[in-house]
Design a protein around this nucleic acid. Structure first.
Length: 282
DNA sequence: ATCCAGGAAAACG
DNA sequence: CGTTTTCATGGA
């Protein structure tokens, strides 16, 4: 069993990174190991202190996927600027943003709208089960996330088993767009934040929130500050005054919140967002 | 039954 | 143009 030994200053919590809601295809089984599908690989991994034991991918892949090459302490220090975020940083120490495959991330956050994490996980698992390639690992069958062409070929009725609800046509439409547009990922990656955001929002089912999640989780664009119902509550309670509390988030309020966050937390405001989000329960 | 969840599109003034 | 309504799903 190969292992990665984390350096003393290489702060990392596998559990917090995998269970904070940024990824949807990882499970911690009874045996204490995490199992997940990334691309065409099934990865099995666990952490004991400074040691990561893993199977299913080379060390370079693991290190890159979990962003172990970035200086996490320097990042969290850069936005450790008030008591609220300080508490979140302390509570979630070791949480790293993962480098997700962009295509899967895009569809995942289309499936995430007006929903909750258990439902999102179920939908992504359904899509992989029905359209992905079977992957055998440790006596179990896992499924890769399907290519754009596979979902583009799916009509809305064959997607009905995936329980996407009204999101089904968005998924098919976006899959068709991406299937035709090889290199879309390079295009997005090359654009500055606001332009990349506008470009992503041209896809069906991708609004401000989904675009920010995709930029943050798949493109490491830390200027993105996704605002969902939880983040809106947290920001309203601790940072900025908004008119009404329980109405739908308007575009105007969304922009107000994300611009405040960029100003307040700085370059890594997206990272700050994930700490606030992960610290929301308890 | 009613409300809620990592919202966004479509319809409406 | 900004604002309200609707959308499918399952858990609480």
């Amino acid at each position: 069993m190969p292992a990665i030994l984390l350096a003393a200053d290489q702060t990392f919590s596998l559990n917090r990174s995998l269970s904070c809601g940024q990824v949807f295809r990882w499970n911690r089984e009874q045996d204490g190991w995490w199992y997940g599908v990334v691309g065409e690989r099934v990865i099995k991994i666990r952490q004991e202190g400074a040691t990561l034991q893993y199977e299913g991918a080379p060390a370079t892949f693991i290190k890159h996927y979990f962003s172990l090459d970035t200086d996490l302490d320097a990042i969290t220090n850069s936005f450790d600027c008030d008591p609220v975020i300080h508490t979140a940083i302390t509570k979630c120490r070791g949480l790293r943003l993962i480098r997700q495959p962009a295509w899967e991330c895009l569809i995942s956050y289309i499936c995430a709208t007006n929903s909750n994490i258990p439902m999102i996980r179920k939908r992504i698992a359904n899509i992989a089960r029905d359209f992905g390639k079977p992957l055998e690992f440790g006596g179990h069958t896992y499924f890769s996330f399907p290519d754009p062409s596979a979902l583009a070929a799916a009509c809305t009725s064959t997607l009905s088993d995936c329980k996407l609800g009204y999101r089904s046509p968005y998924v098919v439409d976006t899959a068709c767009t991406i299937a035709d547009e090889k290199g879309w990922q390079d295009t997005i990656a090359a654009l500055p934040y606001e332009q990349a955001r506008r470009e992503l929002m041209k896809m069906q089912g991708v609004g401000p929130k989904a675009a920010d999640c995709i930029l943050l989780f798949a493109f490491q664009n830390y200027a993105a500050f996704p605002v969902d119902i939880w983040i809106r509550r947290i920001m309203q309670e601790h940072y900025i005054k908004l008119q009404s509390s329980n109405t739908a988030l308007t575009g105007w309020e969304y922009d107000l919140i994300r611009r405040f966050a960029r100003q307040h937390f700085g370059t890594y405001c997206g990272y700050a967002q994930e700490y606030l989000y992960a610290a929301r329960d308890s």
